[in-house]
Design a protein around this nucleic acid. Structure first.
Lengths: 231, 231
DNA sequence: CAAAAAAATTGTTTTATATCAATTTATTAT
DNA sequence: ATAATAAATTGATATAAAACAATTTTTTTG
């Protein structure tokens, strides 16, 4: 609790600053801090909806969120967002609308900052602008990998990719507690939840992983890598 | 021929300047112009390969090119590039590598500009930087639409989307001359070329379009839109 | 704690789509 | 022009994956 309050007290003391804000001066950081306010979301709550105006830069400071496109009858999860990362969609520089929705997967806290201040800093600080472009680029590269996985691999390969994403990029440990639902797993890998469940079961039966309750452990990462690569 | 030489003579006189370069001063444009050189590509030739270093900003000044990801055994075409548009991948601000390949679909001419000069202008001219971010954002939004089409629509809907892309965004006329191959059509819509051909045939039989030789005319855009939307 | 609701699991059936193989048409080179 | 090569087309078959339906497990709520 004390931690949370400290956390909220000032951008300069927040671990946010090690991230995209690393190129900001104390003065610039103070500007962000002055316009910032903090919001809590319960698991399942919507943070913003696709199509709505986008007045804030959202920085997730605790919990886990997902960003997802609401498509034709089902959702595609573009990414999971964990602390300290931000949500900043492509609409900001186009028509100020969200092109995807965001919601809390676990209980979340987030700091919201006025987009105008963010844009002002992009114009005034070239290092910050470059860092921002770099991050947008990394996101694009990630999306390229994702679209190739989704369109050119069969279900086993896609589930393998999602498991690596979760263990390497999101939970960052090997036996990890799966805090997303099977439906989310399906929405990450572009298949029905029934198919996702069946493939997890197969992987269990083949000894590639264990999954008891929601604790998933990858036992044979080599074989899983192989499955990822052979589609 | 005279036209081509004029075209090549100076960035300031080139129609490139109405595009992303609109925010550059004459001096900045002259800087680009001084480092620029022009290259011709025959149809089918590779402009650059995925994975190779990316020292140039490529501006297509005539013809038609494609950018495509070489995936697991097949290609995914991300976009067709027509004059005057540029090719500038996400690797520039990451590791200076190409994350997709580019090749000429029709005979092409392109101007190459040193990436370092481009990056310098991004740092020095905030209007140019904003315009660049806006274009990167538009590309992202386009990719979102594409990935939803590819992962959530059936083949008929995907082919409908590609036909609209070609007639509205690329050839920009209604009876249009299809200069891309059936394989390209398949690589745009994420299916086998046999399937792409079969669906075109169905659309012909249903009177939605005519396709004689390579001249394609959309006869019933409303019905085609319907097919696009119902997946 | 019991009841209700939601999520996960399993089996069966249907269908969309790829693959394979053969043929025709168009393009290129001699 | 003609042969050789590549691209497009068509049909038949195989299969990956969704949809549907039913059941079990887990979570939430009164």
């Amino acid at each position: 609790m004390v931690n949370k309050l400290q956390h909220a007290s000032n951008c300069a003391d927040c671990n946010c600053k090690v991230s995209i804000f690393k190129n900001l001066s104390p003065l610039e950081l103070a500007l962000i801090n002055s316009s910032r306010f903090q919001v809590s979301y319960k698991a399942g709550e919507i943070i913003f909806k696709q199509g709505t105006p986008s007045p804030y830069f959202v920085c997730v400071t605790s919990g886990l969120a997902k960003i997802y496109i609401e498509g034709y009858g089902k959702n595609l999860i573009l990414a999971l967002i964990k602390p300290v990362d931000y949500i900043f969609g492509p609409g900001i520089y186009v028509d100020n609308r969200h092109y995807y929705s965001a919601s809390a997967v676990e209980d979340c806290q987030a700091c919201l900052v006025d987009v105008a201040i963010f844009k002002k800093l992009i114009r005034e600080n070239p290092d910050f602008a470059e860092e921002f472009i770099k991050r947008v680029s990394l996101q694009s590269i990630f999306n390229f990998d994702q679209v190739i996985s989704l369109t050119q691999k069969q279900m086993h390969g896609r589930i393998a990719d999602v498991i690596f994403y979760l263990s390497d990029k999101i939970y960052c440990q090997n036996p990890f507690e799966l805090t997303i639902s099977r439906q989310d797993l399906a929405d990450l890998s572009g298949m029905s939840k029934e198919s996702a469940i069946r493939i997890l079961k197969e992987f269990k039966e083949e000894g590639i992983l264990t999954l008891s309750g929601n604790t998933l452990e990858v036992l044979n990462p080599k074989q899983l890598r192989q499955i990822s690569e052979t589609g």
